[in-house]
Amino acid sequence: MSSTSVRTDDAPRRRPGLLTRMIESRNGLGFLFMLPAGIFLLFFLTYPLGLGVWLGFTDTKIGRSGIFVGLENYRWLFDDPVFWLAVFNTLFYTVFASVAKFALGLWLAMLLNRHLPFKNFFRAIILLPWVVPTVLSAMAFWWIFDSQFSIISWVLMRIGLIDQPINFLGDPWNARWSVIAANIWRGIPFVAISLLAGLQTIPQSLNEAAAIDGATPWQRFTKVTLPLLTPIIAVVMTFSVLFTFTDFQLIYVLTRGGPVNATHLMATLSFQRAIPGGQLGEGAAIAVAMIPFLLAAILFSFFGLQRRKWQQGND
């Protein structure tokens, strides 16, 4: 086995400069091309994130730069029942709103994927909740949930189902369900339209083949449509969960976290403590506490998003 150097022709050649080598190598070139985006990300994503994390380890207040206090803020939060209530609220809010958005969004997408009269009109209509500014729709809901003038209460009273207005935002559990309802209303278009796009990539002939093979409509849904839709579902629901988990505007307009913190999410509590409350360090710590949850969601979707064996690409 003579593995000794045979590459004598390489030796006399001059070594090219670093830049030349970089441009000629595939990875180097890739690195060069990514550099601008990398710098951009570093400044606009990493810097604020880093600053936030750093603030969480200090006792900074508005108008006074703080000193490093280690895990003080986190120890404090650990013993704070309001913080734990906000964690519970956030999880509750995310789970119920996301599940409902998925189910209703998928149902709507299936409806819109059929041959309906005025199909395009309905497809446009369904985007409305999404294009309306959140603050505006939140204010609309504020009226819908008003303790005196709520249209829901009014209708129910007219039919005679109840005899006094429902206190939507004044009672802790009513308030929780109310903000979830508003979030669902706002989030459905994104889910429905994305899933509709996914549904439209499934050829009609697959459904027809399944029908001939003896599948009932339900079996066609579970055995053909749903499996083929899973890649899209994974993407859409990851985004949906992230949006819901970090929701702020809707809550802030509707309830400001009340009544008695029943609808405080981690995002709203963090803002509440940091800006009106002035405790920047503590607010930052709450925001940082959201990161593990978000990472878990991303990790989950990473595995959910992995190419299935039947999809295009490497095995």
Binding site: S205, L206, A209, A210, G214, V224
Partner: peptide, 16 residues
């Protein structure tokens, strides 16, 4: 279709 006892081969094959 499922009660007609027929099988069909589609132009685009329609394999799952």
């Amino acid at each position: 279709p499922k009660d007609r006892d027929i099988a069909m081969v589609f132009q685009n094959y329609a394999l799952y």
